[in-house]
Design a protein around this nucleic acid. Structure first.
Lengths: 150, 150
DNA sequence: TAATGTTTGATTGTGCGCAATTAAATTTTA
DNA sequence: TAAAATTTAATTGCGCACAATCAAACATTA
């Protein structure tokens, strides 16, 4: 009996509310939008903020390393990094040891931005109205899904 | 003791791995990428697929209604719908009752696409390797977060 | 070493996504 | 009804995302 789905079971999978991917798509965009007021005050976009999170931690990274960590390719990163370079936030130079690689490094203005971020992460946690434990559990769950996909 | 966070507690919030939003951002893009082979076979992009999911269910919707359901504004929808109109998938016409509104309706070619979608939703479920129960629970969770944000 | 293959970024072109502005139609209010 | 406010799309401009292609640098191997 259960072997044959109900007549409209397949069709119900074609409803927007049935989709798992749409909530991801929508939440991702709404989260980015929630960052907007904070990041705009610093003149940053969300992907640029992600680049800074990595550089504040690692000082220097190649474009390849940035791409691996953010799951972005050079078609996205190269123009984005050039805009950040124009703002004197970071430097881009070829690695003398391997001229194929471009090393991205923090400049003083970029380093100084870290202090201005303040409690943005805490403000964002407040916006989603979740306990640290919930956030942690959800992040584990999402990271697991990411591993399935990437 | 717990009142004062450890010296680097605040800094740890600035690591990419600590962020909740990055997994959302990454999973959303990887999910879209996972749809790619299926949708490309139909000549569809992922946002266009979402529009079809709504139109297959409702036949006709205004741009405003589409925007409310997908959380997208006219700056995104208008050019997207025009591209779909060029393909003869749908029609766009002003509502005679209220000339401010544009009604989007399925055309035969758009209706015919529904049959070609086949088991894409099932294939996608297989890709994330989750049980229907897990998917349902996660969707509820995400929808709740979405309500907090939007 | 010379030829072949691989790695790494850059470039190009298309399609979102969204803030800000504009314009037209409608509704509300004085 | 006339004026003001609101609603609804369209437009403009910018910044991602990403597929596809290209070119240069490096590594491998015959």
């Amino acid at each position: 009996m259960e072997a044959t789905p109900a007549p409209d079971a397949k069709n119900s999978l074609l409803k927007l509310e049935s989709q798992l991917c749409f909530p991801f798509y929508a939440v991702s965009r709404q989260l980015t939008k929630a960052y907007q007021p904070y990041l705009q005050a610093l003149g940053l976009t969300y992907p640029q903020y992600l680049v800074f999170l990595l550089l504040w931690e690692h000082q220097e990274l190649t474009v390849k390393e940035l791409g691996e960590k953010l799951l972005l390719d050079s078609g996205t990163l190269t123009p984005l990094l050039k805009r950040m370079e124009q703002r004197q936030w970071l430097s881009r130079r070829r690695d003398p040891r391997d001229e194929r690689s471009v090393v991205v490094g923090l400049l003083p203005a970029g380093r100084a931005l870290e202090a201005q971020v303040g409690d943005i992460p805490l403000q964002m946690l407040a916006k989603v109205n979740m306990s640290p434990a919930e956030v942690g559990a959800l992040r584990v769950h999402l990271t697991h899904i990411l591993a399935q996909l990437a």
